[in-house]
Amino acid sequence: MLVSRSGYNWVMGSLLVAVALLGVFWVSWRREPRRLRLGVYLVLAAWFALGALLQLTRDLWPTDGVWALLPLLPVPLTVLALAGFLVANGLTMVRKEGRSLGNLLSLVVGVALVAAPVVAIVLLRTHDGPFIAVAVFAFFVCVQLGASFAAFLAYTLAYRRVRPGDADAAAVVVLGSGLVRGQVPRLLAGRLDRAVTEWRRLRALGFSTPLVPSGGQGPDEPRAEGDAMGDYLTDRGIPASDVVVEDAARTTEENLELSVALLRDRGREGRLTVVTSGYHAPRAALISRRLGMDAVVLGAPTARYFVPSAYLREFVAVLTYHPWLHLLLVAPSAAFAVLLARAY
Rank of each mutant, 00 (worst) to 15 (best):
A116T: 15
A116L: 12
A116Q: 11
P117E: 08
V118H: 05
V118C: 12
V119L: 15
V119H: 05
A120E: 10
I121V: 14
V122R: 10
L123E: 02
L124E: 02
L124I: 07
L124K: 01
T126M: 05
T126W: 04
T126C: 06
H127P: 00
H127W: 12
G129I: 00
P130S: 04
P130Q: 03
P130T: 02
P130V: 02
F131S: 09
F131V: 00
F131M: 07
I132E: 13
A133S: 04
V134N: 00
A135H: 02
A135P: 02
A138R: 01
A138D: 03
F140I: 06
F140W: 12
C142H: 07
C142M: 13
V143E: 08
V143T: 08
Q144R: 05
L145A: 15
L145Q: 10
G146D: 10
G146Y: 09
G146R: 06
G146I: 09
A147P: 09
A147S: 14
A147C: 14
S148D: 09
A151V: 11
A151N: 07
A151T: 08
F152Q: 07
F152R: 01
F152D: 00
L153E: 14
L153H: 12
A154M: 15
Y155K: 05
T156C: 08
T156I: 07
A158F: 12
R160E: 10
R160G: 09
V162Y: 04
V162W: 05
V162L: 06
R163A: 13
P164T: 13
P164S: 09
P164D: 12
G165I: 13
G165A: 08
G165K: 08
D166S: 14
D166W: 03
D168I: 02
A169V: 14
A171K: 01
A171L: 01
A171M: 02
V172Y: 01
V172D: 01
V173E: 00
V173L: 13
V174G: 01
L175F: 09
G176P: 04
S177A: 15
S177L: 07
S177H: 05
G178M: 12
G178V: 08
L179K: 05
L179Q: 10
V180N: 05
R181F: 13
R181Y: 06
G182N: 09
Q183F: 06
Q183H: 13
Q183L: 14
Q183S: 14
Q183R: 15
Q183V: 08
P185L: 09
P185F: 07
